[in-house]
Design a protein around this nucleic acid. Sequence first.
DNA 1: CAATCTATCTTTAGACT
DNA 2: AAGTCTAAAGATAGATT
Lengths: 199, 199
Amino acid sequence: MEKKQTKGRQKIEMKRIPNEEDRLITFSKRRSGIYKKASELSTLCGAEVGVLVFSPAGKAFSFGQPSIEKITNKVLYENPPPNDNTLNLVEAHRRFRLNELHQKYSELLSKMEVAKEQEKILRKKVPNRSKGWWEEPISELSMHELEQMAIKIQMLHKHVQHRANELWTRASSSSLPFSVVNQTPSTNPFSMTEVEQKY
Amino acid sequence: MEKKQTKGRQKIEMKRIPNEEDRLITFSKRRSGIYKKASELSTLCGAEVGVLVFSPAGKAFSFGQPSIEKITNKVLYENPPPNDNTLNLVEAHRRFRLNELHQKYSELLSKMEVAKEQEKILRKKVPNRSKGWWEEPISELSMHELEQMAIKIQMLHKHVQHRANELWTRASSSSLPFSVVNQTPSTNPFSMTEVEQKY
DNA sequence: CAATCTATCTTTAGACT
DNA sequence: AAGTCTAAAGATAGATT
């Protein structure tokens, strides 16, 4: 007897699913679905794909081919030019704002340099230290202090960025949404063969 | 009789598509498909989803709801514990190897904290200083210093990196790409729709 | 090439276990 | 709560414009 056992897939509105349970199920199912799609794209086209998902509760899920760190590091370190015809402009904006962490890192490095200098000066006056701070083990740091520091760095970062923009806007009078300052092309690990350069 | 106009969707093997043109088309189509899925997951479940795709040529594409930076920063900064039942083991393994940049960032924060402490101690002995460098407004940095920043950072970066190799397993291979953002505020985090297409 | 077409393949909503 | 089932919804391969 050909009685329908189920109604089959039903159409649903494209809006937040009201029912908690249904939403959870859908979250799980569709997340898996995206992973599968990502893996297929990777296989079929030889691309590297990373998917990051955060549940409303803030729990993190990720999928990466070859690995999610590789993917994110690629974005953060290498920052290749966007090439998506559909999302080109958006990409340009995003990608260069994406540098925030990297910039912070740079900021920190430079501030460390300054600190080092100043400490050197201080040490001349108080020559009873044996090791530089950079040689000390990191060890014991209170969460609170770290957080405070992070906030300060963030503020400083904004100042520097603003100043940097003045500087580099003057230096390179470009109308582009960004300006690349120092590309150091010598060590670019992503010089690709012309064969695959198309996309 | 109604003649078939197309053969419809054909099944394809799940392996790298040999034909270059087909592969390109598939890359584009399926990438869009994943973006759509991601956006739907976000809408239906209130999740934040980020997708990063790198073509074999290393060109980057990304999609993010609310924004790809937010997503990646979340991973890099917060590094929440894995909670994916499907990929649990893989995730656990991956996340245990902390993100390299994040590690460096943390390292630097730590070292700065140490530096701060030590400078505080030093200052007690040499109480003719008024403020710590981290308290100085950044605008007091000279133009010259800002211009020299790249070089300094690179040198220090190498130094830190060398020491990092001792502490951590792996060294970063990339030199620092000094890209600078202009302060595009970009209030609209939603991706696909927000922009006039440039071409 | 981007866009459309459409037959067919693939995903998944809902129900049950 | 993870797995199964089913049929409808949705994605897309291949062709065309």
